[in-house]
Design a protein around this nucleic acid. Structure first.
Lengths: 223, 223
DNA sequence: GTCTATAAATCGATAGAC
DNA sequence: GTCTATCGATTTATAGAC
């Protein structure tokens, strides 16, 4: 389906400019020199196009991050490399990042197909905590997990079934926490909440983000 | 200006349903039984209306959070109360939360007036770290701040000038980090990234959020 | 200060010819 | 499979009467 590819490429190119909520089937058609009605041969609705773009963005982001960090043996360096790679991807493709992690597009309901690709990067973080044996390096948190979080983690199994590995409760809970932080911090930067807060230069912003990754690594006992 | 109040009230009521990007001057006018053109007597453009709503939302959220937590003397309890109050406000008013912390509205550029009200809640967190003397309870982080973050914090003074207090670099850097986490985690929950991850019940979601607040408090040496 | 009327533009989706 | 033409709806914003 080469034409379907062309459609998603054109749509992604549009996302460089207009933001997910304003993505328009007609504009995609214009860019391809087709009639807007012709698009509907390949995609049944705008929502279906959005789903394709979302899954593609999750996969692209994970591909880039994995490729950049897979060979980093040292756990702490890999941890930081993953965070930094996420930030770089987001800075390169801010609208696609917003498509994934910004406000949901009004009226759009994500189908189940988007879940699995969304777990790929957080699974990398959880995997590091597993390798680092977070239960033994930071026993206080594991005790907290066992004490107050056990019932809320009923869906670890659902999540885990999407990956090839088994995760401990502690690695899962803390990895998710780190993931929320990474995305939250990138969102702050991308969505303008760092103006007049952290220095406005890219170097300063990166330094602050790296500081956060270091603090997280310290917290989670990654050597 | 009672009519201007009525306009913002009607606009906020619309935000209960439609999401910031779809907020329409005409729909506000409809709700008030006015002609859409009449609105432009009070508000010069849709962007100006958005600015009013953003400032109002920052202030409402901060008012609610302050009122709920001001009297909590114990630092750790106040820390958690602030986080939980933020989450509750967001669950009550998801579209207004998205207006503040979701994707920026396309084509809208926030003016400087929105900065000061946006700092009110993070200042509460920074204040707690200051009171808890985070430099002495977690000296490792303070060393990290001094070592690698000093240049990036050039704007602490800008921020501080908006508040009545002086903040230490460490309290500022770590408070901002906690703030990014609180907003990141709430965004995850609100924007649908916890489906099939943490248990779907409200109690489970709250338990996980509370777990995160506890871990943050531990990390930052709040007794 | 509020109205009617309108300009000028956008959009998603479908019908039906070819 | 791609087109033209169209339905039916939305929007911001302005002109000008009252």
């Amino acid at each position: 389906m080469a034409i379907l590819d062309a459609i998603t490429v054109a749509a992604n190119q549009q996302l460089l400019e207009v933001g997910p909520a304003d993505l328009s089937v007609r504009a995609v058609a214009r860019e391809l020199g087709m009639a807007s009605s012709a698009i509907y041969r390949y995609v049944s609705s705008r929502d279906e196009l959005l789903t394709l773009l979302i899954i593609g963005a999750f996969d692209d982001m994970a591909d880039v991050v994995e490729a950049k960090t897979r060979r980093v043996a040292d756990l702490r360096r890999r941890w930081k490399a993953i965070g930094l790679a996420c930030r770089e991807w987001a800075l390169d493709e801010p609208q696609r990042f917003a498509l994934l992690y910004g406000s949901p597009v009004a009226g759009y309901a994500a189908p189940q197909d988007t879940i699995a690709p969304a777990t790929r990067i957080p699974n990398l973080l959880i995997g590091i905590l597993q390798e680092a044996k977070v239960e033994t390096t930071v026993p206080a948190f594991s005790a907290r997990v066992a004490r107050s979080l056990k019932p809320a983690l009923s869906d670890v199994n659902t999540w885990a079934s999407l990956s090839t590995r088994d995760f401990s409760d502690s690695a899962f809970a803390l990895g998710l926490m780190a993931w929320a932080h990474v995305i939250g911090s990138i969102s702050f930067e991308l969505f303008g909440h760092r103006h007049n807060v952290v220095g406005d230069s890219m170097a300063d912003r990166r330094a602050y983000f790296e500081f956060e990754l270091d603090v997280l690594a310290d917290l989670m006992g990654i050597d």
